[in-house]
Amino acid sequence: MIHILLADDQRLVRAGIRGILEDEDDLHVVAEAADGHAALAACRELLPDVVLMDIRMPGMDGLEAARRIAADQQLDAVKVVMLTTFDLDEYVYGALRSGATGFLLKDTEPDELLRAVRVAAQGDALITPSITRRLIAEFADRPVNTRTPDHRLDALTSREREVMRLIAAGRTNDEIARQLVVSPLTAKTHVSRIMTKLGARDRSQVVVMAYEYRMVSPGWHL
């Protein structure tokens, strides 16, 4: 059973999402929160598997709540999927930097929402393809990264770099396995090794590093 916390300041939105989730035998909403403070408190008390977090909420917003969840070692197993009506690049990047595992628009189809929750619970990152394309386009327009090269990247094999690009393109482990014609277990092993070598908490941090170091470009096929 996947235990879920809903965090959104609109009661009607929470009710609609709860209805979709609780029609599924393997999903259970353990609590609701109307702002970031309440979401963080509920996480510490209930330790949900997944938090569906609205970005724009009064008081503490979703990004700050996600940052605090990511920084709390006791909440290391909690995965955050950001929900918003806005697909602006700064929200997407901010969500990834905050430690979110996924990012979905509120007009996402119910099947995609359910998939996102299950994918997040497994530790995969999920970002809709349209948002991924916008992220790539945004970073392509930025000046070349002048940050000191991260030597952790040097430890990656050529196959691991290929897998890292696929992670940044929003691929799940199963999709990576199909694209590279390897077993799902092999794909999962590659992802785990990448995260270990980079010291990444989760896949979203791998995505951020791939963008920041220009490992993904507009020529990368999604």
Rank of each mutant, 00 (worst) to 15 (best):
P184G: 09
T146Q: 05
L96C: 10
R134Q: 13
R44Y: 11
T101C: 12
R214A: 14
F86T: 10
L166K: 12
E32C: 07
A155E: 09
F139L: 04
Q205G: 10
S217D: 10
R118I: 15
A33R: 00
V51D: 03
R118K: 07
Q74L: 11
T172A: 12
I127L: 13
M1Q: 03
I4F: 04
Q179Y: 09
V50C: 14
R147H: 09
G16T: 02
M164D: 00
Q179W: 05
R193D: 08
E138Y: 08
R152N: 14
Q74K: 07
H151T: 15
T101P: 07
E109I: 10
R97Q: 14
L104Q: 05
I176F: 10
T186F: 06
E138G: 09
E24M: 01
R178G: 10
A140H: 09
L198T: 15
Y211I: 14
A200D: 03
A42W: 03
E64Y: 05
I20S: 01
G19A: 05
W220Q: 09
E162D: 12
P184M: 07
A177C: 08
D23I: 04
A140G: 14
Y91L: 11
C43K: 00
V117N: 02
I127S: 04
D72H: 08
L104M: 13
G123Y: 04
R152E: 15
P149R: 06
E175Y: 04
A65E: 01
G59Y: 03
H37Y: 02
L156H: 09
I194Y: 04
T85G: 09
R178Q: 11
L156G: 13
A177E: 10
V50D: 10
L46T: 11
W220P: 00
C43N: 04
H28R: 00
W220L: 15
K188M: 09
Q179P: 02
L27I: 09
A155G: 10
D72V: 14
